[in-house]
Simulated scan of single mutants.
Amino acid sequence: MLIAQITDLHIGFDPDNPAEYNRKRLDEVLDRLIEGPNRPDLLLATGDITDRGDADSYRRLVTAFSRCPFPVWPSVGNHDLRDNFHAHFPGFDDGNGFVQYVLDLPELRLVTVDTLEEGRHGGAFCTARAAWLDTELAKDSAKPTYIVMHHPPVESGIDWMNTHPDEPWVHRFAEVVRRHPQVRGLICGHLHRSVTVAWEGRTVAICSSTAPQVSLDLRPIDENHPDDRPMIVAEDPAYALHHWNGRELVSFYDHAGAHTMLAKYDERLQPLVKELKGERPS
């Protein structure tokens, strides 16, 4: 099974522009997923799918996703607004107004949780959401499970985007996850950077954004003294492919820009392919 992920689309950043830069970048990624060699079985859109949470941006996203020949499973981030999300993406309400749901696939489960607190940039995870997650995870303790969420509960090292490990929502979320050993890992966004980190004995796979990326700068930042460092950079729009091989989820990170071919599979490389495959157990 091949699971694609896009995140931090920020549609509506330039709302009056019919050729919006962020929409163009999203379309480039969708083109690659639809027309490229790795067409996924499903697509996760892990939050900040709009920039302002306005109804028109969600409407435009419905149109953008309508051409996908695979199902798209959206979630919310700190730039989204739940009421407008639910109005255009119905069916993802957990019964309490949160965007939380379960994909029960043949070999694994994907459990999407809502880390949005409207008006706050960082994550949130209240007792109601924790109770829902605890209940859903308890329904199947055998099947490998991955939690899909916008905010990663880890300290990344990009100072102005960090999540502090002592934030109450992180402790509340961790308490639930610790009770369920079938949770293998987390699939996240928010950082506008591809990052892999261990957390609570699980792998956290964080995908870069389709919108412009956060500059990779691990120096401390002083909120009282701007130093003219780059903050946002226009690297190619990115996405992730999470491949379930029957045993574990293998995450790849790619971009939708030009891929210059330096070698191709022809008669010259055929002996190498035969040799490499021949070394494996039959």
Rank of each mutant, 00 (worst) to 15 (best):
E279Y: 10
G122F: 06
D93L: 12
R60S: 15
R52E: 09
T127W: 09
D16K: 14
N245S: 04
Y239C: 02
H242P: 13
T7W: 05
R247Q: 07
D16I: 06
H255E: 11
R268G: 08
P153N: 01
P153V: 02
L26H: 06
I3L: 14
S251P: 12
Q270Y: 06
R82E: 08
K277T: 03
V62P: 03
E35H: 13
E118K: 11
G246C: 10
R229W: 03
L241Q: 03
V113E: 02
V99N: 05
N84P: 02
T7H: 02
G95A: 12
V154W: 03
R184C: 10
H225D: 08
K277P: 00
Y58R: 10
H86P: 01
E223N: 05
D159N: 06
H121T: 07
W132V: 13
S208T: 00
R109I: 01
I206Q: 06
R280T: 07
S209L: 07
S156K: 06
G257R: 05
H242F: 10
H171W: 05
P106M: 01
D48V: 12
R179L: 14
T260Q: 13
R202P: 02
H164P: 00
Y58S: 11
T163D: 03
L276V: 15
R184T: 01
V197N: 02
P71C: 10
L42D: 03
P71K: 09
V197L: 12
A258N: 05
D80H: 10
D217V: 08
D93Y: 12
G157A: 08
Q5M: 14
A256M: 06
Y58D: 11
M231Q: 14
T210R: 03
C207G: 15
H190Y: 07
V204H: 02
G123K: 04
R178V: 14
F65Q: 06
